[in-house]
Amino acid sequence: MIEVNPQDYDIVLKIKDESDIAVSRQMAKNFAQKMNFSLADVTKIATAVSELARNIYRYAKEGYIYIRKKEAGPEKATTIEILACDRGPGIENVELAVSGGYTTSERSLGLGLAGIRRLMDSFHIESEVGKGTAVIVEKRRRAF
């Protein structure tokens, strides 16, 4: 699994209660706003964090979300990185969970992850049954 050093991150959020979902959403929104993302991208980032937090709360009961600002790629584009990890049950079929279809009619894990992937520029997931799940997503800031 991914090794995390909390000191490398600007924001560390513990997800334990249902209300932490709304808190993490708000924190992500404020941070993205400070990074000068467009309003649409701020909303996408906040929504993605909301989904990640909910997955943690619902499936692993508790876990952490780490957020940081960095520069990525040859162009050193300002980028937000979000890492969500837990020691929950893990996902058996990661591919299936990530490739959710265009529906909202089920309370499935699939839509959350598939939706997050569509909202962000990069998406990486590691999961091991019985050990936990880590999701890393990034979004680059576009010019104007």
Partner: peptide
Amino acid sequence: IQPQVALTLAQMGIRLK
């Protein structure tokens, strides 16, 4: 619905049945 919320929902592929 705020425009940026509409964009986010559409990009996630969410339909409001």
